[in-house]
Write a protein that binds this DNA or RNA. Structure first.
Lengths: 187, 187
DNA sequence: AACATGATGTGACATACATCACAATTACAA
DNA sequence: TTGTAATTGTGATGTATGTCACATCATGTT
């Protein structure tokens, strides 16, 4: 289980045993059940989460009471309301389990100590942040240049396993269309 | 002019004179005219650019020949096709001047040497990357939760100066609506 | 000054998608 | 096992936005 974290980090930077022990000491493990919230809108965001197993969704509830899915987080993804986490302000988003989920939790203090104490980790997080930025830009581009059907097909190609694990209603919300429209796309 | 870079970096991390000299030695200054391309789709992306003065747009040309604006870059913004730049692959996007523009150019080699040679700079770029990721996520949220009029108002609030400097046709492209629709929004 | 080019507004019409309503099916909890 | 909630499909209809066409006005170039 912690091997999964080590392997994940070592895909980017090599770590000696004592270095990984140092890294691992900053995380705590938690388990949440399906439908449980890791944090909700309005609360403080105590951690950034590394998904060991399970599936999360990051969502926004608008004034009209509608729910919008900002992103999913599968195994080996990092997720949080980064804006609120990094600035230690109240969450605008909520993070909820779609399946029973085990995460490794890193506080902001832990994050900063890790970066300051081991440059490899700052390098690792820089790579992850750049990757996240690039992925978000791709998604923006899909809203600009593609219609609902194309966005759905892109999602199928990129994350085929999601379709098995997530109800269509939620996929629709992630894609920015109504569930009825998504249901009619394949015709 | 290079003071602008120093001040920009020192908003995040303090630098001694010799440290800034080290930083500055990795950049070269270039000037481009309105309408000129810094790089185009299909080409290599030689640099990440720090905008000293002027205005850039990052754009995507789809198969149908339509142009989509991924982002604008004003003074003190960093811009590139980060995906292509970081992976040193061919650009999917193009970067073009909306005004005569002066930039400071940093190659990937320079970026990596800067990060490796001065942890403060890796820290600086991590903060920028996190900020970029958060901003992109906000924009995704605006596509999910807001209609064209609301997105336009959010843009007005966030970057009021853009509206003075950019033709409505391009604002429309950035917002993901036709110029006709944007033109009718205020009625 | 003359001209070409780009920017903006607006009407008429087409279309992608949302919303509402209902039915059928499946998953799950008492 | 039985009942309740969640999921999915689909018809009817409304609406936001796109597309096409044209006119006007501003801008920049020779």
């Amino acid at each position: 289980m912690q091997d999964k974290l080590r392997q994940h980090i070592e895909n980017v930077v090599a770590l000696a045993d004592d270095e990984f022990d140092f890294v691992r000491s900053h995380f705590i493990s938690k388990r949440f059940e399906k439908r449980e919230f890791l944090f909700q809108k309005g609360e403080r965001v105590p951690y950034v989460y590394f998904v060991v197993s399970g599936l999360l969704m990051l969502l926004y509830n608008d004034e009209a009471g509608k729910e919008h899915i900002v992103s999913f987080a599968m195994e080996e993804w990092w997720e949080s309301d980064f804006q609120a986490f990094l600035a230690q302000t109240n969450a605008a988003l909520s993070l909820q389990c779609l399946e029973d989920t085990t995460v490794l939790c890193l506080s902001l203090e832990g994050y900063e100590k890790l970066c300051a104490g081991l440059q490899k980790m700052e390098h690792f997080f820089l790579k992850k942040a750049n990757g996240g930025h690039v992925a978000s830009q791709q998604r923006i581009l899909s809203f600009l240049a593609s219609d609902a059907k194309e966005r759905y097909e892109q999602l199928l190609n990129r994350y085929p396993s999601l379709i098995q694990r997530v109800p269509k209603t939620l996929l629709a919300s992630y894609l920015g269309v109504s569930r009825e429209t998504l249901s009619r796309l394949s015709r």
